[in-house]
Design a protein around this nucleic acid. Structure first.
Length: 857
RNA sequence: GCCGAGAUGGCGGAACUGGUAGACGCACUGGACUCAAAAUCCAGCGAGGCUUAACCCCUCGUGCGGGUUCGAUUCCCGCUCUCGGCACCA
């Protein structure tokens, strides 16, 4: 008979709602625990397996902590701005606000069927003015600190979505959202100066409990590198001299490069500027002008994929100009080439083909000289090289630095340059400033007004929010949709009162999600973004659970915004997420589930067929939580059967419910002692595994115990009723099975099993608790089970007997038996004797409670 | 190309600091119950061999090749493949 999960789950969901069981009392707490999942990005879809996989197990963990005496805050909300809603609107004509509201209402109902501890009074919705008012406030705080600025920059432009994308949203030159190749465009855009926090963002990584690979990804993304900026004088040709004199800007006639390998400076045989480098026009000689212009034009038309492809052959042209190597006065040619990026360092490099792979490739192609200035410590390079030698070694052909180790050469040349005033130590970062403006409708408007007389004027805080107008034509044209809303655009300048125009861009949704966890505490507070007092009590987040795909986006942005707000004096902590866990990805037939692939699996069918408890528990049982895996519903019946067996076990308990002295091991008979021991072993295992998000083995532990326990009960009974015909055992069992095991021990077993199961199958656990005569809610009434360390120890141990490392026998001895005694016993085993006969025992390894290994010859 | 993670039965996966490989579950096979099926329960279940009446017993086996060790899924060296990240960052 299957348990009626349907009515049980409905019953307890109603109970929880009616009794506000999960109402969060945020004040008067003594052991706070902020358990957060990455909030929902509500597209037009309903909840999918991925949401369940993220939320269900996390809720199990939160309930586990709650039962362990923590004051747990586990909120849920909606990252409701963004492209999916807007694209949906463009396709169907349904306004994003309407579709978003409707979706959220649907999703909320679905969330309730999951059986999580969300307090829906604490929801946030980033698309509501009461929320984005404060997103705008966050922008203004950064603006005040000089961390938000507008600049003209080459940006990633998606021709399909008709908007600018952040670097992180461009994957292999393709728009992350729609798959269209991205093009480069020069536009005036808003940036957050995240680069100013590069070092702090790096340092903070050492203080937080995050997966190593995520911290590594952030480190690589920030890409700090220490090197030297070196100036190369240009050789004054006749025409150039004329130019520089006319402009009186002789200091401009230098090329600055950044290098991490000043130790190879003697090997610099040419220089390369990015085609976009500002000096290109002024240094190019007349005869090469047309070639250079042609090339610059050619590069400008390469798209992002072509430009950044590492497999593509490098191209370039000479400018006709020459520069002077400051360390040896050598005259070397200046080229421009597409392998040098305008956006990193100074946009120019010194080329050392012998010791840099890219330079080597380029020099080989264009027949530029290759000079060895570093020799490996062992072996010797001979010309011509067939590959660049990029490792450290011993300097050669490097003047007075010849013969020194690379590190010494590095220091020596750097000091020399510093003395000459042509070089200085410098740190460069790979990370770029955060481009946050979007030419789209469905986002938080940027609270800036452009005034002809005053320039950029921030909207005064008391005038927030800058409301997003409802009635706007949002079909994409490349211009911000808000630009076409007269009533929105035209305002009076807050400073001078003259007519001015609002900024028409909206913010990247990653701004919305960079501070939402502060707002959860007081989602409706209207005179401040958050309650400083509560925030200082509850933050940082103790456990944050979400996908690893946010490693270099959301997780980095949020850290930056929190650091900036701290420096602005609003927060007293600077790392928002103390501990981070990534759930794995659930794929389908090896591919990520997505609507476009048409391989999305709908969780509802499983909830209908097996119930929410079974479904969420199955997701946890599938495998290690942080590994995810390919979806298969094979095996869900195993979990369902387990819950049914547990239910039946509780149902068959009709006897006395009192608890007694069953926890005194001395009072128990042999069988009872075994039960008591296994019970405590289970408690230990489930406790430790659940704490560490090892849900799969925790569940296996419960299953193992129930298997054992049912077995003991039915065996005890079978012995008793051995005179009963075989077919009758089932019926007799129901009547007699408990007679052998003390009643109070059985109660103890059920009580503990009930508690351990509760975080995993919350609905069923409430029901079982009620069946046992307990008062609801079990989550409020019961504390987590404690195991008795004394009871865990086994009485006997199975010792493996090996001869030359091969298992020949097993013996059972009391725990901690004397080594000599065990060795004696082992030698007397028949199958062991066989292998010892006629041989010399060279050595006998005895590992207590584990094995004996005889080494014989 | 670089960085990181991984590879264990038919399948998902267990295995503490080196010490019984395959926990738990699925699938499968046989049996019980049933008119029958489903459900449930019991038993078996890495490959091969020897006995085969059965218990035993033996050999091989954790991606591939080496090594360290009394003993290696676990540690070291060299490969192959899969997944994730980065991708001319000077």
């Amino acid at each position: 008979m299957k348990y009626d999960f349907n009515s049980i789950e409905k019953k307890w969901q109603k109970f929880w709602q009616d009794n506000k069981t999960y109402h969060a009392d945020l004040t008067g707490i003594d052991k706070k625990l902020y358990c957060l999942v990455m909030f929902l990005y509500p597209s037009a879809d309903r909840l999918h397996i991925g949401h369940w996989y993220n939320f269900g197990p996390t809720d199990t963990w939160a309930r586990f902590k709650l039962m362990n005496g923590f004051d747990v805050f586990e909120p849920m909300g909606y990252d409701a701005f963004g492209l999916p809603a807007e694209n949906y609107a463009i396709k169907t004509g349904v306004h994003p606000q309407d579709s978003t509201d409707r979706n959220i209402n649907d999703i909320r109902e679905q969330l309730k069927t999951m059986g999580a501890m969300y307090d829906f009074d604490h929801e946030v919705d980033t698309s509501k003015p009461e929320y984005y008012k404060w997103t705008q406030w966050v922008f203004l705080q950064l603006y005040k600190k000089g961390l938000a600025y507008r600049a003209n920059a080459p940006v990633n432009w998606c021709p399909k979505d008709q908007t600018v994308l952040a670097n992180e949203q461009v994957i292999d030159g393709i728009c992350e959202r729609c798959g269209t190749p991205v093009i480069r465009k020069s536009m005036t855009q808003w940036f957050f100066k995240i680069t100013a926090y590069a070092d702090q963002l790096l340092d903070g990584l050492d203080r937080i409990d995050w997966p190593e690979r995520t911290r590594l990804m952030q480190r690589n993304w920030i890409g700090r590198s220490e090197g030297v900026e070196i100036e190369f004088e240009l050789v004054a040709t006749g025409e150039m001299e004329e130019r520089t004199e006319v402009r009186g800007q002789r200091q401009d006639a230098r090329i600055r490069v950044f290098t991490t390998r000043p130790d190879t400076l003697f090997g610099a045989t040419y220089m390369v500027l990015a085609p976009e480098h500002p000096l290109v026009q002024s240094i190019t000689t007349d005869e090469l002008k047309s070639k250079v212009n042609e090339y610059v034009e050619f590069v400008a038309h390469e798209n992002e994929i072509e430009r950044t492809s590492t497999t593509k052959e490098k191209t370039g042209v000479p400018t006709g100009a020459f520069a002077i190597n400051p360390i040896n006065g050598e005259k070397i040619p200046v080229w421009i080439a597409d392998y040098v990026l305008a956006t990193y360092g100074t946009g120019a490099v010194m080329a050392v083909p012998a010791h840099d792979e890219r330079d080597f490739e380029f020099a080989t192609k264009y027949n530029l000289p290759i000079r060895i200035v570093v020799q490996p410590k062992d072996g010797r390079l001979t010309e011509p090289l067939d590959a660049a030698f990029v490792d450290e070694g011993i300097g050669m052909s490097s003047g007075k630095f010849t013969g020194l180790e690379s590190k010494k050469v590095w220091e020596g040349i750097t000091s020399e340059l510093e003395k000459l005033g042509t070089g200085r130590r410098k740190v460069n970062y790979r990370i770029r400033d955060w481009l946050l403006s979007r030419q789209r409708y469905w986002g938080a408007p940027i609270p800036i007004v452009h005034c002809n007389s005053c320039g950029e004027v921030p909207v005064p805080e008391k005038e927030l929010p800058v409301l997003l107008p409802y009635d706007v034509e949002f079909k994409p044209t490349g211009e911000s949709p808000l630009a076409r809303s007269e009533s929105f655009v035209n305002v009076k300048c807050a400073r001078c009162g003259k007519p001015a125009k609002r900024d028409v861009d909206t913010m990247d949704t990653f701004v919305d999600s960079s501070w939402y966890f502060l707002r959860y505490l007081t989602p409706h507070l209207d005179n401040a973004p958050f309650d400083a007092d509560l925030v200082s009590k509850w933050l940082p987040v103790d456990k944050y659970v979400g996908g690893a795909e946010h490693a270099t986006m959301h997780l980095l942005y949020a850290r930056f915004i929190i650091k900036a707000l701290k420096d602005a004096g609003y927060l007293n902590f600077d790392e928002p997420f103390q501990s981070l866990v990534h759930q794995g990805t659930i794929t389908n037939q090896g591919a990520k589930m997505s609507k476009s692939r048409g391989n999305v699996v709908n969780p509802d069918q499983f909830v209908q067929k097996y119930g929410a408890d079974t479904f969420r528990m199955f997701l946890m049982f599938m495998g290690p939580y942080n590994e995810g895996g390919d979806w298969s519903d094979k095996g869900i019946t195993g979990v369902f059967r387990f819950l049914n067996r547990v239910h039946d076990l509780f149902q068959s308990e009709t006897g006395d419910r009192r608890e007694g002295t069953a926890n005194k091991i001395a009072d128990l008979n042999k069988v009872e002692q075994e039960i008591y021991r296994k019970l405590n072993q289970m408690i230990k295992k489930v406790t430790e595994d659940t704490e560490d998000f090892r849900f799969n083995t925790a569940i296996a532990g419960m299953m193992e115990f129930v298997n054992f326990y049912e077995d003991v009960l039915s065996k005890a009974n079978a012995e008793r009723s051995s005179d009963v015909p075989a077919g009758m055992i089932e019926q007799v069992k129901v009547v007699n099975e408990h007679d052998r095991v003390r009643n109070d021990l059985r109660n103890l077993v059920l009580k503990n099993l009930n508690i351990l199961l509760a975080p995993f199958a919350p609905h069923l656990a409430e029901e079982l608790n009620e069946m046992r005569g307990g008062l609801p809610s079990i989550f409020k009434r019961e504390r987590w089970a404690k195991y008795d360390p004394e009871a865990i120890a086994e009485e006997s141990a199975t010792i493996v007997v090996q001869v030359n490392g091969k298992i020949r026998s097993k013996i059972t001895v009391p725990v901690d038996s004397d080594d000599d005694h065990v060795r004696q016993l082992a030698t007397s085993e028949d199958n062991v004797k066989k292998y010892l006969e006629g041989k010399n025992i060279v050595r006998a390894v005895v590992v207590k409670n584990r094995l004996v290994n005889f080494v014989v010859k």
